[in-house]
Write a protein that binds this DNA or RNA. Structure first.
Lengths: 125, 125
DNA sequence: CGCGTAACTGGCCGCATGGCCAGGAAAATG
DNA sequence: CATTTTCCTGGCCATGCGGCCAGTTACGCG
């Protein structure tokens, strides 16, 4: 292990790829790049290569614009009343949209809905 | 439709790097790898390289084990009653822990608490 | 022109939620 | 041993939440 490359801190990359085939190809490709190194298990990495789609995301679960509005405010911890004020609609309407959200996201409550939405990338926390 | 490229689909990577210097180095390195290609802005990527520095995570915000238990079940959309059953404690105790969570996480409700916790990496969605 | 869908509003009701009060038991730490 | 911390439990209560019923308005599509 000769350390002659003191001024080229190798960039350590970790992989979080769901698809085994893709993970394998990426590992092979990235392993041969000078200046890069793949992280050992548990090692702290400078960056992470992620690819966790394919499975739970038909396309976008067909949420309407208004539902997305409500969902975003829910993720901020807003109550129905707050969301209603924010969007200039009635609490009843907010509940209506929340109900649709729970249905479409297959959630049991607003917390579950936000968690599901975040998991499948519908919203960004 | 004759397919000559059946065995080498280029892997498209997108970058989400906070540190400009690191982003630049990675872009340079990865741009020269055969079989890889960096995604054009807005292009669908097969994988994403993420590195959002160690920003928001003081250490762990001092949550007790029990609070972590409750928090995890909250993130799964569990109601107080469900969590109580799961942990073998009373609903009152669950409420007590939820209250502490709301306080420590500076949240206004359980949904907000889960969102905050996920944001600062206390829990994994 | 009907038909479906999205958005919106209302009332009602049972349960959940969260804040408040009070307390007790066990383990760690001094 | 005394104190602190964590965990646990109970009651009370105002409010929030979500399911259910019903209805109106507007837009796009066949």
């Amino acid at each position: 292990m000769s350390e002659d490359e003191t001024k080229t801190p190798e960039i350590v990359l970790s992989l979080e790829i769901d698809d085994p085939a893709l993970a394998d190809r990426l590992a092979t490709l990235l392993g041969n790049v000078a200046g890069l190194r793949l992280a050992a298990p548990g090692e702290q990495a400078a960056a992470t290569v992620v690819a966790r789609d394919a499975r739970t995301m038909p396309d976008d679960i067909a949420l309407t614009q208004r539902e997305l509005d409500v969902l975003a405010l829910m993720a901020e911890g807003g109550s129905n009343k707050m969301i209603a004020r924010q969007l200039g609609i009635s609490v009843h309407t907010v509940k209506f949209h929340v109900g649709s959200l729970l249905d479409k996201l297959d959630a049991t409550g607003r917390t579950d809905a936000v968690a599901h939405a975040a998991r499948r990338g519908v919203i960004e926390l």
